[in-house]
Amino acid sequence: MARSEEERRRIIEEENRQPYLPWMTWGEFSALPERQKSRELQKFSQYVTTYLGFWKTCDLSSCRRAKACRGFLTEAQYRAEPRYHDSFPPCVGPGGARQPEVLAGMRRLGGREEDDEPKYDGRQRADREAW
């Protein structure tokens, strides 16, 4: 059944009110220009890189002084080859060299274990019982 225009508008408004980052909804985030979206995602990643202690070996003195990740990608880093991932601060490295560490840290901070696999094993069990 086709949705009415009012129903479509309501669904879009609901999606736009959904939280995306701790300080921003999806609607606010999607309205930003690309560089500002990148900056907001880097702010979020900075919490994790600070937790992991990347500031201890960071090239930026501001990060080392603050004992926290404070860096943002420069225009040169956006254009560099190998490319820096635009959702992570520069301490992650070109080509996302330390990206797996950051993603594992995000899972840890989010309360998920690194080897957290789905617990349901019903299909395999049912296949074994059939034989």
Results as ranks from 00 to 15, higher is better:
residue 93 G to R: 04
residue 51 Y to I: 05
residue 66 A to C: 03
residue 43 K to M: 12
residue 37 K to A: 04
residue 58 C to M: 01
residue 113 E to D: 15
residue 120 Y to G: 09
residue 9 R to V: 07
residue 99 Q to E: 14
residue 12 I to L: 13
residue 81 E to Y: 15
residue 3 R to G: 12
residue 7 E to G: 02
residue 46 Q to L: 04
residue 65 R to W: 05
residue 58 C to A: 08
residue 54 F to S: 00
residue 129 E to T: 09
residue 122 G to K: 05
residue 31 A to H: 13
residue 57 T to K: 00
residue 124 Q to G: 13
residue 73 L to R: 08
residue 7 E to W: 03
residue 87 S to C: 10
residue 28 E to I: 00
residue 41 L to R: 12
residue 98 R to V: 03
residue 110 G to F: 11
residue 126 A to G: 10
residue 87 S to N: 14
residue 128 R to C: 07
residue 2 A to Q: 15
residue 18 Q to H: 10
residue 32 L to M: 11
residue 116 D to A: 14
residue 20 Y to K: 06
residue 84 Y to E: 01
residue 96 G to W: 10
residue 43 K to E: 12
residue 88 F to V: 06
residue 43 K to T: 11
residue 66 A to G: 05
residue 115 D to Q: 13
residue 10 R to E: 15
residue 79 R to G: 01
residue 117 E to F: 10
residue 34 E to W: 10
residue 32 L to Q: 11
residue 2 A to Y: 14
residue 130 A to G: 00
residue 79 R to V: 02
residue 69 C to R: 00
residue 79 R to P: 00
residue 76 A to R: 13
residue 31 A to C: 10
residue 74 T to V: 00
residue 20 Y to H: 09
residue 48 V to Q: 07
residue 70 R to G: 11
residue 108 R to P: 02
residue 97 A to I: 04
residue 89 P to E: 05
residue 91 C to N: 05
residue 116 D to R: 03
residue 78 Y to R: 12
residue 38 S to K: 01
residue 68 A to I: 07
residue 91 C to I: 08
residue 36 Q to F: 02
residue 58 C to P: 08
residue 120 Y to C: 14
residue 3 R to Y: 15
residue 93 G to C: 09
residue 42 Q to K: 00
residue 67 K to T: 04
residue 70 R to P: 14
residue 25 T to K: 06
residue 6 E to V: 14
residue 33 P to I: 00
residue 106 M to D: 02
residue 97 A to E: 08
residue 45 S to Q: 01
residue 113 E to M: 12
residue 23 W to H: 11
residue 93 G to P: 08
residue 7 E to T: 11
residue 123 R to G: 09
residue 10 R to V: 10
residue 112 R to M: 15
residue 15 E to V: 10
residue 41 L to K: 14
residue 97 A to S: 05
residue 126 A to N: 09
residue 3 R to C: 12
residue 17 R to L: 15
residue 29 F to A: 06
residue 44 F to M: 08
residue 54 F to L: 03
residue 80 A to E: 01
residue 26 W to M: 14
residue 109 L to Y: 01
residue 69 C to D: 01
residue 71 G to R: 00
residue 77 Q to D: 02
residue 79 R to N: 05
residue 73 L to K: 06
residue 83 R to K: 13
residue 128 R to T: 04
residue 121 D to Q: 15
residue 9 R to S: 10
residue 96 G to T: 07
residue 24 M to L: 13
residue 72 F to Y: 14
residue 47 Y to C: 08
residue 43 K to V: 08
residue 28 E to H: 04
residue 67 K to M: 04
residue 51 Y to N: 05
residue 117 E to R: 06
residue 9 R to A: 13
residue 128 R to D: 02
residue 21 L to H: 03
residue 75 E to L: 12
residue 11 I to Q: 09
residue 62 S to M: 07
residue 111 G to N: 05
residue 42 Q to F: 02
residue 19 P to C: 06
residue 42 Q to A: 01
residue 42 Q to N: 00
residue 96 G to P: 13
